[in-house]
Design a protein around this nucleic acid. Structure first.
Lengths: 137, 137
DNA sequence: TTCTAGTTTATAATAATTCTAAAAAAAGTA
DNA sequence: TACTTTTTTTAGAATTATTATAAACTAGAA
């Protein structure tokens, strides 16, 4: 279980000043061990509900991007209308239900090794990401 | 080689009135057999250059979305900042170079069969899309 | 030719995100 | 502690991409 003190350390270690706002956002994002997906809009609603003092939208944007840069969050592009962030930063894949817009993790272990028989001249692969679109049976 | 007449037929067959604007956009998108990727912004620039009479931006949006709905175009979500469309509507995958923002097709045949050992209750897979991110060697 | 539904257009509206500049807070220093 | 510097936060403005609106136009049918 992550506590305030650990977040302060985490922030300081990555060169981010542990401000009140950043610590609060850490608590919302990283307190429970379960990872989850969110949009900026959803996050700002959660923060508005959970926290006594409001955090400005600009700060939420700044912080999410700072956390992404530091590798504490991953951005996922599923469809154009919504941009999701993921607190699970390990390499993994996703299921996406276009109807419900629901996003579910698909762990690396649940996918057989992917063999790609083509390469681009002068380029090497940095990651292989799978998006499995699902619909109702 | 696709000609104007074919586009008129194509449009009519799918219940879209073959208007001057739609035919012009067809010509830009489907005239040459090579498929390609574009953003709305790029498309509107191409149209502005190639065509004597201007087509309003709203019409370009409408038309691209109509074509997508009819299956003549596919939308690809690679990253948040740009939304790409693809004139290659067959099932295939992509390479993406985050540095140059270059998008390259990866055909289905160049990927070994993907085995996913997890399923979501009540859902079935409708598609499996791979995004291979590349960087300079 | 006339009529009608579908389409295009300019413009306004909306939404998401970034920018800006001033105020506030954190860290460093004496 | 008090002072200084640097970073961060903030509200609101600016920007950008996209969608909505309503009037003018057009393709196709009668």
């Amino acid at each position: 279980m992550n506590s305030k003190g650990n977040f302060v350390k985490k922030l300081r270690n990555s060169g981010l000043r542990p401000t009140k706002q950043r610590i609060k956002i850490c608590e919302v994002l990283f307190k429970n061990e379960k990872t989850f997906h969110f949009t900026i809009n959803e996050l700002s609603k959660i923060i508005a509900e959970k926290i006594e003092e409001k955090i400005s939208l600009a700060t939420i944007y700044n912080t999410v991007h700072a956390f992404k840069k530091k590798g504490y969050l991953k951005e996922i592009s599923i469809n154009t209308d919504k941009s999701y962030f993921d607190t699970n930063t390990s390499h993994h894949h996703h299921f996406f239900d276009n109807l419900t817009k629901e996003l579910t993790d698909l762990s690396n272990e649940d996918v057989e090794k992917i063999q790609i028989n083509k390469s681009l001249p002068g380029k090497k692969i940095s990651s292989v990401e799978i998006l499995v679109k699902v619909e109702n049976e």
